[in-house]
Every structure is written in structure tokens, then in C-alpha cells.
Design a protein around this nucleic acid. Structure first.
Length: 491
RNA sequence: CGGGGUGUGGCGCAGUUGGCUAGCGCACUUGCAUGGGGUGCAAGGGGUCGGAAGUUCGAGUCUUCUCACCCCGACCA
């Protein structure tokens, strides 16, 4: 019957790969560590881009584009930054190829060596701050609120579709401000934007928090993040917002004259989310029958499948189906009428099921006669025969319901997999049992954090912003702790 | 970068004392029937067995080297 699908319980990572493959989201490419994002997967990314881009614009940001290549010397300006990224940078050393004189095909032309090597951007802080120096002279030039949609390269040893690839697509916002307060406010604002997007578009609840020093972005003063919980009990960082202080302004000498004429360094932020969100989306909602997409990010929100036995019926049913499509589109619903005669209805049902299309409408001769259609929901797999009247309204309502149900389901899952833990034994047991978020006391030292990581592979995902002040004892060392932090094994 | 594994039509695999024309499932093409949950039957097309060298009358099969990919660790969004 159905294509052999791995289940989550059997083999979670195989299940994930199967979904990516069968739903047509992406595939491996000829280049190690780099994936081809296929049209259906890219369509999801485009919907994410559209949603986020509007939110960025609504908060006063503009898009721009900076070069893919960064002079190597730029990188070494900020000490922490180089150290953080040095191990995973691709470097361009030559600019020409030539025919091998010995007949070995095309080779690098050693005469075409670059005077200064170029780093393929792993992130753009350096080139952007080198540019901002030119843009900023007075407090009147501030703030600069710029975002760019781009690809970046981080030479990863081990890669996984969408979650970690050598090249990935993302957006990176880079802002410059006159005061520390304003930059901090921006950092928080963008964190809120990300949380809003995750919860209301992706239907994934997230924890907002601060990263511990060891997990902090290289070059940042403080890193904020949103953390989501996947169905296998592992955490996934879904977005980050960094308060960069004056680190990059100092490294690139970006100063402005304040109202009193005094020269001051600019305050900075940067924030980003990547195609990793597609991975989060897959792992948050999908089931053993395939992908499940929240309506707001589904490239196809409703699919109509005609059912027929002969040409006459085909014509009759498709005509009606086209009318329905038109009606739904008037409600702003993205509809696909799959009138291909090359595939059978059952085949189509399966296909749209593992592609995660939220609502499926089947219409056959019986329906045309009775003035009904069959409406099926991807989230609950429920089917219902309903009248054709007011179908647009009904489907619109259904899509809204599905969006809510998915969020609620993900929230319930997170709630039931978040535990306060006070003993080291329980900490280890829960982690091995089912994973999830563990709220535990931590003495605040990197040493303890490191030890916990070595012994359990769990890391501090964040120090929650909405924490209840609670004195306690560190779950590992027993030393005093000012509050609980979130531990989990993570992607 | 360490440990393990796999390379055979598009995909998934079988082929293990070396032997004849390299096979199976899915997919593909054609025809007929079928059509409310991956439809059935029949007939077809498609391979220098990852690459190189070697042993041999003879290599998918044995030896050496090499490349690629996957899984598990260390590092990371």
C-alpha cells in the first residue's frame, strides 16, 4: 500500500530524512554537505521569508546586500569573532583556472593567486561594519536598520538536511545605534519578532532566553535566543538576536559625533534565522504518515482531487471543482486543483498527505449530484462530507482551526516534556528517558556547564527571560544558584 | 578529524568455493481493463557492477591502492 515510511519511534532521523525526500523538500547534491532545495521545500522557505520580511519592514528595517566575499584581514579585527569562526571558513585563494599542460584537465592557475585571500562569509558582521564606518558620522545618521537575505557558508563536518548544511540560506539583520539602551531594545524587539513568527506562523511554541557564555555568539556581549522542542525530545535553536555592544564598532572604528560634539562608538545588534526553520517545522508537527504543515506556511493550503470513471464524469467533476477553486481563492486560500489524469485519486491522496497539505477536498459524481464534497484534515486525518454551500467560509475557518490545533498540540507536547529537576540522578534519568526541557539550578560557572555536557551531552539552552526568582542549589555541584536554567540535548 | 558501514539500471536491493546472456522489486514506456485511499494484467526499454592497477584461461566475486556517500562520536545555527 503506502510507500514504506519509517516511523518516529523506529528511527527518528531516518523518519526525518524520509519526510524530506518523499515530500520533495530537498535532496543531497553533488557537493558534500550542500543540499538542493527543491521547489516544494523552497516554496515553504519563500513563505517564511515573506512573513518575516513583512515583520522586519513593519519594525522599520530595510533590505540591502553585502558581498559574499570578505577580505581575510577583516576577520581578524575582532578577536572572539575570528576564534569562533576560523575553523569553518571556506577560503578563496585563486581567481583563474587553466588547462593542465600535462593533459590532466582543468587545474588551478598558480599564477592567479589572490594578493589577499577572500573568506566566503560565514556571517557578515565584519564586512558590514567596515561599510558602516563610511555611513556613520553623526548621531543624525543613526540608527541604521538593515537586513540582508543571503547565503552563508560554514564548513561543517557533519551535515543534516536543513538543520546543518555547509551552505545555507538565512537573513541577517545588522543595526547600529547611538546608545546602549536603544541597541538593547532592538535586540529584544527582534527576539520578540522571531518568537511571534515561530508561534503564530510556524505554530511552534518557543522559550525566549539568554545564552550562557559558552554558547554566546562569537563577538557578542549577550546572545538571546528562541528555543523550540522537537518531537524526539531534543531542543532546537530557532533564532538568535545578539547585543554586540561596541565590539565591532571598536574593531572597525565606527564612531559618531553626539549632540555635544563628542565622538562615541556606535552600539550594535545582529539577528538571524535560517533555512533551519524548515527543519524545525518538519520535526515539530509531522507524523508517521508524512509532513504536516501549518496552514500559514503551506505552499498549497487546500488541494482538490476530482474523482471520476470516464471522460464525461471527468468533465463534469472538474468543472465543478474549478468553481470551488475559484470560490476558495476569493477567500485568499491557496488552492491547487489536481486534475491530472496520469495519477489515480488514491495515489494523489497519499501524495498530498505526505506533502502535508492541510486540507483536501475530494469531489466525485456522487458529490456533484448531492451538492456535497468530502473534506479531509491533515492534522487529525478526519474526513467529513459537507455541503458545497459556503465552502469558502468553511475551509477558511478550518485552516484557522488547524493552525491553532497544531500550535496547541506542540505546546501540550512541550508542557508535558518540561520538568523541574532537583537531583542529579533524576536529571540523568529524565534525559535518557525522554529528553525534553529540564529546568534545573546551575551555579553559573562554565566548569559546571562543561561537566554536565561531558556527562550527559545536555547543554544549557538558555536562561529564560521569564524566570521566577528562586534560590536553590546547583543540580550538579550543589553550590548556590540564583534561578533555574533550561537544559536539553540539542540539535 | 576518530570509529563503523555501504558502493551493482532512476531508486531500493540479491548475487559469498571465481564460470555461460548479471538478476529482482519499485519507477519508466505501450496496450487493455480500472478509477470514493498508492489499481490489475500483458508486453517492452534501460547496466562499461564507484575508479585504477594486479592475480587468472576467465573477476560483480580474490589482492592492493583510491574516491565517494551514509551512520555513530568531537565541533557548530
Amino acid at each position: 500500500m503506502a510507500k514504506a515510511f519509517s516511523t518516529r519511534a523506529e528511527n527518528y532521523s531516518k523518519w526525518y530524512n524520509d519526510i524530506v525526500q518523499y515530500a520533495g523538500l530537498a535532496e543531497n547534491s553533488a557537493v558534500r554537505g550542500c543540499m538542493v532545495i527543491k521547489p516544494y521545500g523552497y516554496a515553504i522557505w519563500e513563505k517564511m521569508q515573506a512573513g518575516l520580511d513583512k515583520m522586519f519592514k513593519d519594525t522599520g528595517h530595510s533590505n540591502a546586500y553585502f558581498p559574499l566575499f570578505i577580505p581575510k584581514s577583516f576577520f581578524s579585527r575582532e578577536a572572539d569573532h575570528v576564534e569562533g569562526f576560523a575553523k569553518e571558513c571556506a577560503v578563496v585563494t585563486h581567481y583563474r583556472l587553466k588547462q593542465d599542460e600535462k593533459g590532466g584537465g582543468i587545474v588551478v592557475d598558480e599564477d592567479a593567486k589572490l594578493e589577499e585571500e577572500l573568506v566566503v562569509r560565514p556571517t557578515s558582521e565584519t564586512i558590514i561594519w567596515d561599510t558602516y564606518r563610511q555611513w556613520v558620522q553623526s548621531y543624525r545618521d543613526l540608527p541604521i536598520l538593515v537586513n540582508q537575505w543571503a547565503n552563508v557558508v560554514r564548513w561543517e563536518m557533519r551535515t543534516r538536511m536543513f538543520l546543518r548544511t555547509a551552505e545555507f540560506l538565512w537573513q541577517e539583520g545588522h543595526t547600529a545605534h547611538a546608545t546602549r539602551e536603544e541597541a538593547l531594545e532592538e535586540t529584544y524587539q527582534m527576539l520578540d519578532v522571531y518568537a511571534d513568527f515561530a508561534e503564530n506562523h510556524m505554530a511552534i511554541p518557543v522559550l525566549k532566553g539568554i545564552k550562557s557564555a559558552s554558547e554566546r555568539f562569537a563577538g557578542a556581549e549577550e546572545t538571546f535566543c528562541i528555543e523550540a522542542l522537537m518531537q524526539d525530545g531534543k531542543a532546537l535553536q530557532a533564532g538568535t538576536s545578539h547585543f554586540l555592544g561596541q565590539n565591532f564598532a571598536k574593531a572597525f572604528d565606527v564612531k559618531f559625533a553626539g549632540k555635544t560634539g563628542k565622538l562615541e562608538y556606535v552600539w550594535a545588534t545582529s539577528w538571524g534565522v535560517s533555512t533551519r526553520l524548515v527543519g524545525a517545522l518538519i520535526m515539530a508537527h509531522s507524523d508517521d504518515r508524512g509532513l504536516v504543515l501549518p496552514p500559514k506556511l503551506a505552499p498549497i493550503q487546500t488541494v482538490i482531487v476530482p474523482i471520476y470513471k470516464n471522460d464525461d464524469q471527468y468533465k463534469l467533476v472538474c468543472e465543478k471543482a474549478a468553481e470551488i477553486k475559484k470560490e476558495l481563492e476569493q477567500f485568499g486560500i491557496q488552492v491547487k486543483l489536481d486534475d491530472r489524469d496520469t495519477h489515480k485519486p488514491g495515489w494523489k491522496f497519499s501524495e498530498y498527505e505526505f506533502k502535508g497539505v492541510p486540507v483536501r477536498i475530494a469531489i466525485g459524481p456522487r458529490d456533484v449530484e448531492n451538492g456535497t464534497v468530502e473534506v479531509a484534515r491533515r492534522d487529525t486525518l478526519e474526513k467529513e462530507v459537507v455541503p458545497m454551500d459556503n465552502l469558502g467560509e468553511r475551509v477558511q475557518g478550518l485552516l484557522e482551526t488547524i493552525q491553532k490545533v497544531l500550535y496547541q498540540r506542540a505546546l501540550d507536547f512541550r508542557e508535558s516534556n518540561t520538568h523541574k529537576v532537583d537531583s542529579w540522578e533524576e536529571f540523568k534519568r529524565l534525559l535518557d528517558d525522554k529528553g525534553g526541557f529540564l529546568l534545573a539550578h546551575w551555579d553559573g560557572t562554565p566548569e559546571t556547564e562543561q561537566k554536565i555536557k561531558e556527562e550527559t551531552r545536555a547543554t544549557i539552552r538558555c536562561i529564560p527571560l521569564e524566570k521566577s526568582e528562586e534560590q536553590g542549589k546547583c543540580v550538579y555541584s550543589g553550590n548556590p544558584s540564583p534561578g533555574r536554567v533550561v537544559f536539553a540535548r540539542a540539535y
